[in-house]
Amino acid sequence: MTFSQLLSEFFTIVASLLLAPLLLGWVTQLRAWLQNRSGPGIFQPYRILHKLFNKDSVMADTASSLFRFTPYLIFGCMLLASAIVPTLSTDFPLAQAADAIALVGLFALARIFISLAAMDVGTAFGTLGARREMFVGFLAEPALLMVLFTSSLIAHSTSLKTIVTTQIDRPFAIYPSLVFAGFAFILIFLAENARIPVDNPSTHLELTMIHEALILEYSGRHLALLEWASSLKLFAYSSIGIALFLPWGISTQGSIMSLLYALPIFILKLLVFGVVLALIETFSAKMRIFRVPEFLTIAFLLAVIGMLTYILLGAKAS
């Protein structure tokens, strides 16, 4: 483990912490513009975080220590997730610690804890949210795994680092299986980050909400941590999308200069990603919660077909 590796890890973590709320703000702002509203500005998430951190935290009498501990854990998981996806460089120490499967496991860990915490207080909304969140998760999680596996099959590795480096290093080639994986990934992205059409992050409508129901009992600094964690999750998912489908520009050596080159390219890609997300959200309508399993099953099966296409197109008659 060299100094430059550590430095690149540190750089990535700081970049994700700072960029994550900005990405959220950018998407919100774009949506406002697309809907002919003036919008709150892209720094709004920072202001919200600042406000929440300074407020007193109110906690239910019935809440146990699990409830209190969970926001920190969720924040930690999401931060680690952003730290193990190659965003700026592929040369960093945590790349060995966790591969694509562990990444999905990390998201699952966070999901299970947030659901448990929501059940802890014992209100009707919390348990409802926990049920829905786990329900979305049980289809989205394997779908994400399948998307990652489609790339793993191409790179012959589940290590995210190897997936990205093989993609960058070899001569340009079109992989049809990635078309399926890409579509599946967009669907999973929308579901996992509580975006329209699966969930609407800006309403508290009890019939349809998923993510908001989970964190209804949190306030003050705990809520701030959870909000930050959810923007980190959005960021981590965007980074996964970039690493799998548009990795060009990620630095494959750990030098500081290459990091500084990689950063603007990465930010540019994030901006474009934000535009795509805002467009999708503006053009689609929130669907009924009963349609969500269908939506996710389609994502899951598309990812499976992606893996299948890779094997099929490579198959030779015996």
């Binding site: 951190f53 300074n54 407020k55 007193d56 935290s57 109110v58 906690m59 239910a60 009498d61 019935t62 809440a63 207080v121 014992g122 209100t123 009707a124 909304f125 919390g126 508290h204 009890e206 209804l216 009992e217 003050g220 600094r221 941590l225």
Partner: peptide
């Protein structure tokens, strides 16, 4: 969180929407 912010923690009945 502990170093930067000094907000307190209060207990009350569950909000439940």
């Amino acid at each position: 969180v502990r170093v930067l912010y000094h907000a307190r923690l209060r207990r009350s009945a569950a909000w439940g929407g």
